[in-house]
Amino acid sequence: RSRTTFTAEQLEELEKAFERTHYPDIYTREELAQRTKLTEARVQVWFSNRRARWRK
């Protein structure tokens, strides 16, 4: 699998969701996946990476 490139629109959606919760449940992730046209797995990994960046 090659590296996922996120569009500005996708990042906006993901960042907005991250402001609400750092640990979205499966329903939230599924909804985000549909809205951003990404897979739920990509959304999950993005949140994991985003939390790592947030901790630094």
Rank of each mutant, 00 (worst) to 15 (best):
L38S: 13
A33Q: 05
E19R: 09
A41W: 09
R3H: 10
R50G: 03
E19D: 08
E30Q: 12
R35D: 06
R3P: 09
T5Y: 12
N49S: 09
L11P: 02
T28W: 05
E9A: 10
E15H: 11
V43H: 00
S2K: 03
R29I: 15
A41Y: 06
E40Y: 04
E31Y: 09
W46C: 04
Q10E: 01
I26C: 11
H22Y: 07
T7W: 01
N49G: 12
E31S: 11
R55S: 11
K16W: 09
E19G: 08
Q44F: 06
R53Y: 12
P24A: 05
H22D: 03
A52R: 08
E13L: 06
E9Y: 11
T4F: 13
Q44V: 08
T28M: 13
R42L: 12
A52V: 13
N49T: 09
R3Y: 15
V43T: 01
R42C: 15
I26V: 14
S48F: 10
I26H: 11
K16I: 05
E30M: 15
T36L: 14
Q44P: 00
T7Q: 13
R53I: 15
F6C: 07
T39Y: 00
K16C: 11
A8I: 07
N49C: 14
L11W: 04
W54P: 10
P24G: 01
E9Q: 08
W46I: 02
F47V: 01
T4V: 11
T28F: 12
R29Q: 10
S48I: 04
D25F: 03
E40I: 11
W54R: 09
K16T: 09
T28G: 05
R50K: 07
V45C: 09
Y23N: 11
A17N: 05
R29H: 00
R55Y: 10
E12G: 10
R51Q: 02
R20K: 10
Y23I: 03
S48E: 13
A52Y: 07
E31M: 05
R35Y: 05
S2P: 04
T28S: 07
T21S: 12
T28A: 15
V45M: 09
Y23F: 12
R20T: 14
T5E: 15
E9I: 05
S2I: 11
V43M: 03
T36S: 02
R42G: 13
D25S: 05
E40N: 06
T39N: 05
F6V: 13
S2D: 14
Q44N: 15
Y27E: 13
S48Y: 08
V43L: 06
Q34N: 09
K37I: 04
L14H: 03
L11V: 09
Y23K: 03
Y23S: 06
E13C: 13
E15G: 02
R42M: 15
W46P: 02
D25R: 01
T5P: 10
E15Y: 00
T7N: 06
R1C: 10
L38Q: 04
W54L: 14
E15T: 02
L38I: 07
K16G: 09
K56M: 15
V43K: 00
A8M: 08
R3A: 14
T4W: 05
T5V: 13
D25Y: 03
E12V: 08
W46N: 02
L38T: 12
E12M: 12
Q44D: 14
T39G: 04
S48N: 10
I26K: 13
F6S: 03
I26Y: 08
N49Q: 13
A17S: 13
N49V: 07
E30C: 14
E12P: 02
S2N: 14
A52K: 07
E30L: 15
R42F: 15
Q10T: 01
T28C: 10
W54N: 13
V45S: 14
E31H: 08
Y23R: 04
A41R: 06
E31L: 11
L38W: 03
S2M: 13
L38C: 13
K16V: 06
R42P: 00
V45W: 11
L32F: 04
Q34P: 00
T36Y: 01
T28E: 13
Y23G: 02
A8E: 15
E9K: 11
A41C: 04
E12K: 14
R51M: 01
T4C: 07
A41K: 12
T36C: 12
Q34I: 08
Q10V: 05
R50N: 03
A41L: 06
R20E: 12
S48A: 10
E13Q: 10
R53L: 14
P24K: 03
L14E: 00
T36G: 01
R1V: 05
A17W: 04
R42N: 15
A41F: 05
E31D: 06
T39A: 03
Q34K: 14
Q34W: 08
T39D: 12
F18M: 02
R53T: 12
E15K: 11
E9H: 13
D25A: 04
T36A: 07
R53K: 10
L11H: 11
R42A: 15
F47S: 02
T7S: 10
R29E: 00
E15C: 00
A41I: 00
E40G: 10
H22F: 00
F18L: 01
S48L: 10
K16P: 03
A41N: 11
T7K: 05
R35M: 09
S2H: 07
S2Q: 08
F18E: 01
E13H: 12
H22W: 04
Y23M: 05
L11A: 06
E31Q: 08
W46V: 00
L32M: 06
E15W: 01
Q34G: 09
H22L: 04
L11Q: 06
E13N: 04
R42S: 11
R35F: 06
E12W: 08
R1Q: 05
F18I: 00
S48C: 09
W54A: 10
Q10H: 04
T21R: 04
R3W: 10
R42V: 15
R50I: 00
R1A: 15
E15P: 00
H22N: 06
L14Q: 02
T39E: 07
A33C: 04
L14C: 04
V45A: 15
V45L: 14
K16E: 12
T36W: 09
A41V: 10
T5K: 11
R35T: 10
R51N: 01
E19Q: 14
Y27C: 11
P24S: 01
T4A: 05
F18D: 01
K37F: 07
T4D: 07
N49R: 06
L38G: 03
L14P: 03
E30P: 02
R20W: 10
T5N: 15
A52C: 09
A8D: 15
Q44L: 09
T36K: 02
A41D: 15
Y23H: 07
V43C: 03
L32N: 00
T36P: 03
F6N: 06
T5F: 13
Y23L: 07
E31W: 09
I26R: 09
R53A: 14
Y23E: 08
T5S: 15
R3E: 13
A17H: 00
R42K: 15
L32Q: 03
E13V: 10
E31P: 00
F47G: 02
A17R: 01
F18G: 01
A17C: 15
R55N: 04
R53V: 12
R51E: 00
S2A: 11
R55W: 09
V45R: 07
K37E: 06
T39F: 06
T21I: 05
E40F: 07
T39L: 04
P24R: 04
P24Q: 00
V43A: 02
S48K: 15
R35L: 10
T7G: 02
E40K: 05
I26Q: 05
R50Q: 13
R42W: 11
T5A: 10
T21A: 10
T36N: 03
R3V: 14
W54V: 11
S48T: 14
D25M: 02
R55V: 07
Q44C: 13
A17I: 15
T21M: 04
E40D: 08
E13S: 08
Y27I: 13
R50L: 00
